[in-house]
């Protein structure tokens, strides 16, 4: 076993490149330490905030379902308080939520727009045929482009939009009677003033 490194016979190598890994690790360690102290201080990384709350809804232009009127665009949201509901014929919870949307639609207190997500027109139409259509307009988003801009995590999800097209409230999951009565209806009244 011969020692071929012979450290002293060669010109001294630059030292600083060998410090890079250490520096990187120390920086990362600092981030972790801050993160842990944030968590100890009561910060909960599991709560997903609505990034888009109180910001304008993204621009979109979604094609209609065949035979059901015009395209649904972000311009439709201007001028009145409205609700956008994300659904799909594949979404089980949507069938649970649906009767209540039908009820709201009958009262006419707010226009409900639908976005048919990750679905085919045939299936969407068949589903509406079976359960009824509460929507003023429906746009199709089969490839989730608008859905991603809206920050949707799962269907059903609903957004309350004010007259200027700004997102004011978001319901993740089914709109229950309680949420509607206690939160959304008062908010609609306030936004309509």
């Amino acid at each position: 076993m011969t020692d071929t490194t012979a450290p002293d016979t060669k010109p001294r190598a630059k030292r600083w490149p060998y410090l890079i890994p250490l520096a990187a690790v120390l920086a990362l360690g600092g981030v972790f330490a801050k993160r842990l102290s944030d968590i100890s201080g009561g910060y909960d990384p599991k709560v997903i905030p609505t990034v888009l709350l109180n910001t304008p809804a993204p621009e979109f232009n979604l094609p209609p379902l065949p035979g059901l009127g015009d395209a649904f665009t972000s311009n439709d949201l201007k001028g009145k308080v409205s609700l956008i509901n994300i659904w799909g014929s594949w979404c089980v919870a949507c069938t649970v939520e649906h009767p209540f949307l039908m009820e709201i639609a009958k009262t006419g207190e707010i226009p409900i727009y639908g976005i048919a997500w990750r679905d085919t027109p045939e299936r969407s139409l068949a589903w509406l045929e079976k359960y009824g259509n509460p929507f003023t307009k429906i746009g199709q988003d089969p490839h989730s482009q608008t859905i991603i801009n809206l920050g949707v995590t799962a269907a059903p999800e609903s957004f309350l939009i004010d007259k200027e097209g700004i997102i004011r409230y978001k319901v993740t999951g089914i709109i229950t009677r309680e949420v509607w009565r206690d939160t959304i209806q008062p908010l609609i009244a306030q936004l309509n003033k």
Binding site: T5, A6, P7, R12, K14, R15, Y18, L19, L22
Partner: peptide, 14 residues
């Protein structure tokens, strides 16, 4: 990595 920063510069060769 500190040990590495101290000792590694002399390691090359071969």
């Amino acid at each position: 990595l500190t040990l590495y920063a101290i000792r590694a510069p002399q390691m090359e060769g071969g």
